[in-house]
């Protein structure tokens, strides 16, 4: 696509660029103003998460008015008992939810990535009949709000008996039109036709060419698409809310929202605020750790895959 026409130059530029040249481009010195600006930003972005961290160490009474105030720890430290609460409530259903989220995010994310890589490569490197039309429909379809799809998707899933099974969540999350789009754009630039032709002349079949030549070149984009689809599935809320009724199958987002509803309900309600805050706190840790420990991969990936 036209959007990435300068990619090859840039890749060349990136290789040539040394930290020295970059340092020369800057006019030196620790920048007080910039750092203050960053400090303000960091405080803004981190304070809510700090609040959540602190809140996860309080019991319900502490949340409603503990000694430490909302932004500091109380004298009593209830983190461990809150964790215990998560294990006790409905036989530790929270951990089941967390496990479900992992299952959905990983199977949906990996599946979506595989499909996107294959399709993106197919779109980029083969001029098959109907390619243009298909790709156009693909981009246009992204514009329709998902609310329109819930009822029909439910009808379809229910007609094959998949409602209220894990497939009702996993199968739809294999769909990642944006991932296909990224892969196509990337494959067009990063996989030279000459290389493929050379492999073919050497007698390699189309599949072997793909696996041995194209796939390694696509690796940075694969990481990005994988990350985006895992996050997308992990965030999934609306679809599982509609297609799952068995509480043992829910992902953590829907489960916690249900506890919130239970706490906000008058009749038959129960106040579970301490479990909600602790549950929310724990549920965001895995992705944060994943992001922090994999930053080398996704930062590179985003710079390549996100249309420069």
């Amino acid at each position: 696509m036209a959007l990435v026409t300068d990619t090859p130059h840039r890749q060349g530029g990136q290789k040539a660029r040394s930290s020295a040249s970059r340092n020369r481009a800057r006019n030196g010195g620790p920048r007080i103003g910039s750092h203050i600006f960053l400090l303000i930003l960091v405080i803004y972005f981190i304070t809510p998460l700090w609040w959540l961290t602190v809140a996860s160490t309080k019991d319900t009474a502490g949340l409603f008015g503990g000694s430490g105030g909302p932004l500091w720890f109380d004298d009593e430290f209830h983190f461990v008992s809150n964790i215990q609460g998560l294990f006790e409530r409905q036989d530790g259903i929270y951990w089941r939810w967390l496990g479900n989220s992992f299952l959905y995010a990983i199977s949906g994310g990996v599946g979506a990535t595989i499909l996107a890589v294959l399709a993106g490569y197919g779109f980029a490197k083969y001029d098959f009949r109907g390619r243009g039309a298909f790709f156009g429909i693909l981009l246009g379809a992204v514009m329709v709000p998902l609310t329109a799809l819930v009822i029909p998707t439910f009808v379809l899933l229910s007609s094959v008996g998949l409602v209220n099974t894990i497939w009702a969540v996993i199968l739809p999350s294999l769909l990642s039109p944006f991932g296909v789009y990224l892969m196509r754009v990337f494959a067009q630039e990063a996989v030279p036709d000459e290389l493929l032709d050379a492999a073919r002349i050497d007698g390699a079949g189309e599949l072997r060419t793909f696996f041995q030549i194209a796939l390694p070149l696509l690796r940075p984009a694969i990481v990005t698409v994988l990350l985006l689809s895992v996050v997308g599935t992990w965030n999934n809320f609306f679809l599982p809310l509609a297609v799952l009724s068995d509480p043992l199958l829910l992902p953590v987002t829907v489960g916690l929202n249900g506890w919130q509803a239970l706490s906000n309900a008058g009749s038959g309600g129960e106040a579970l605020w301490n479990l909600i805050t602790t549950g929310a706190f724990i549920s965001i840790i895995p992705l944060i750790i994943a992001f922090l420990s994999l930053q080398k991969y996704w930062q590179g990936g985003l710079s390549l895959g996100s249309l420069k």
Binding site: V163, L241, A242, S245
Partner: peptide, 22 residues
């Protein structure tokens, strides 16, 4: 099955009615 509290449950019931099963 605890299919959710109040409106959460009604949403599912409503979807089931519309689709004829579930």
């Amino acid at each position: 099955t605890n299919a959710g509290q109040g409106n959460d449950e009604y949403t599912k019931f409503s979807t089931s009615i519309e689709s004829g099963s579930g």
